[in-house]
Design a binder for these strands. Structure first.
Lengths: 349, 349
DNA sequence: GTTGTCATGTTTATCGTTAAAGTGTATCGT
DNA sequence: ACGATACACTTTAACGATAAACATGACAAC
């Protein structure tokens, strides 16, 4: 009735049963430190009084653990989650984090000057942070680390924990494939922020800043296998349609169009393929297209791509995040070139 | 060096500046309660000492607020997030929750006997919980409410907070449309758990238990407008391919096949449409198909569907979740029948 | 001159839990 | 029969922050 929502705490239980609060606590977190009978009684009384386990706040404050793993992604949530790769990664992460009795907190990467976002990230109650976005460089990362948050990246680096693929090797695989097919004029489509919604050309030395270190690595590998090719780079935003427009503006509706387009993700590649077909061109014959990730749609679309184990990547990232004692802190996962119909010999002209 | 990570707290700042801890606290959470100069000093000192704002744990314990909104979804994360509707909802939710300076915590709905999942949900440090899954009925919901967590549903109910559409009306819209086109034999495809990976037929009175209350409501509306039609219900799992198999088994490869298939989501409808085309049948001519949600792919596929504002739904859910004073606690959003080419007159036979 | 109000702080008392150390009894090897 | 161990608890002391109430001086209103 008038009784305000009774705050049932461990103390309530302890008093009712005539035991110490610590014992109640142990009933939950250290079952082997009290007799099974007593533990049974405590749990039964808890159920009876409607006590639902140690309060997260109290536990977090005292023990320093929150059992929450942050998931940092760039850009808008709708864009990020539109990519099956991200979802597969998140699914793996969530699965493994769950095994440690923890949950995943969604966190948007703060923009350059965005102080609110930064605060949200800084103050977040998390034990660890998994970074899925293209860049591992983010404002305020050092503070997080200093705060004791384990940061796990998704790309290779000299220091820190990460689960990644060898992006340079991936670039080499694509480059070798295209070189063998005779391509000498290639346009690379990378993701990135579009200030005016318009795609723009990127200089090779700026590719890391625009699209992330992973793109720079892949480009390096590509260049290695196509040393004397004419390579251009276009930043195409995050969405497939934007990629289509970018391809149109910088690769399809130009004189001396490239014979191949290398997209940094399958999602972008599919957008490019659409634009190609709209112009009556045949992917793999008139122009070759490659993607990255090998999402399910890639197979259906016959897209040549690099397969990377997205779900495993997430799973391992979760493991590094939740288990500080896991020995191997830098993990490289295998990749594989999957050749389908979207690539073929460079047309002679 | 040997210095263990210094735990910089408000006290550190307070002592260094010779002010009270409360004042430091106020510098962060109640800026108008101290002079701007002092606040400036405090913040500057904070930066200098590497203090990154009030600890979430301490704040949560004392104030009772966590600035976290739970997002509860059913099934596997990969399945849930494969549906553009869910993502649009989540994007809206995330956007509005962010405006309140909070973040979103992913939580899986606990299965019947799954105690671990239940604990994860019960103990989660959240101020509010938004339920996106088909059912609002979940074990342990009362305890959450009792704990003071605001629960926001995504379907109509007599009590509690929700943001939803009128599902019965949606059913009527589809029913009326099909009735006018002369359909008298209709199979309804609903989502749900598949115990053996096999689709199965569902009795009308069980539809709520299998697929959720929303499906029952829609069926009721459908039945109202097709009073003397022959209606069958099939549970098809969560994925488009599963829906295709279900349609095959219960609607396409049977004698006296229905003239229309009503799917409870566009995702399922697209799976059905694929199965239909595989058999050389033409959607909208040989057999009519309807979906639900109006996801982007629906337009491309020419799918007749019910449009519902998924992102707005998420946004408003976030608002109800984070703002206990928001006056309207039960919100019905508009829907609209979008007729495309996947429906047409029932073929005579 | 008295009272009231405002701005700007401080003091005090927790929020609910767990780590660390301590207490008392039973069991065991020698 | 002795100290050593193990067990099953209890006591003590925080973890870091904020709500609520109280203090102080300035300034305005009457």
């Amino acid at each position: 009735m008038g009784a305000t929502a009774s705050p049932v705490t461990m103390r309530t239980l302890a008093e009712k049963l005539g035991v110490s609060v610590t014992t109640v606590s142990n009933a939950y977190s250290k079952p082997d430190r009290l007799s099974p009978e007593l533990r049974g009684q405590i749990l039964a009384t808890a159920k009876e009084l409607g006590y639902c386990g140690p309060s997260a706040a109290g536990r977090a404050l005292r023990s320093g653990r929150t059992d929450v793993c942050g998931f940092l992604f760039g850009g808008e949530i709708a864009d990020a989650f539109a990519d099956p790769y991200t979802i597969a990664f998140l699914a793996g992460l969530s699965e493994s984090v769950e095994r440690f009795g923890a949950s995943v907190l969604l966190l948007r990467a703060p923009g350059e000057g965005d102080d609110d976002e930064l605060q949200l990230l800084q103050r977040a109650a998390i034990d660890a942070l998994v970074i899925c976005s293209s860049t591992t460089e983010h404002p305020g990362m050092e503070l997080l680390v200093q705060r004791g948050v384990r940061v796990v990246g998704a790309q290779q680096a000299a220091e820190g924990d990460w689960v990644a693929v060898n992006d340079e090797k991936a670039g080499r695989l694509i480059g070798k494939h295209l070189a063998k097919l005779g391509h000498r004029r290639v346009t690379v489509v990378v993701p990135g922020e579009l200030p005016d919604e318009e795609p723009f050309e990127v200089a090779p030395e700026e590719i890391g800043a625009v699209a992330g270190a992973f793109a720079a690595e892949r480009f390096r590998g590509l260049r290695e296998k196509l040393p004397d090719a004419e390579l251009r780079i276009v930043c195409a935003g995050w969405r497939p349609k934007q990629a289509g427009r970018a391809a149109a503006g910088f690769a399809l509706d130009v004189q001396d169009r490239p014979t191949a387009i290398v997209a940094m993700s399958d999602l972008l590649a599919l957008g490019v393929a659409d634009a190609v077909r709209e112009r009556g061109l045949r992917p793999g014959r008139d122009i070759s297209i490659t993607g990255f990730d090998d999402i399910p749609d890639a197979a259906a679309a016959g897209l040549t791509t690099i397969r990377q184990p997205a779900t495993d990547k997430g799973r391992l990232a979760g493991r590094l995040a939740m288990d500080p004692d896991y020995p191997q802190r830098q993990i490289t996962l295998p990749i594989e070139l999957v050749v389908r119909s979207s690539t073929g010999p460079a047309p002679k002209r």
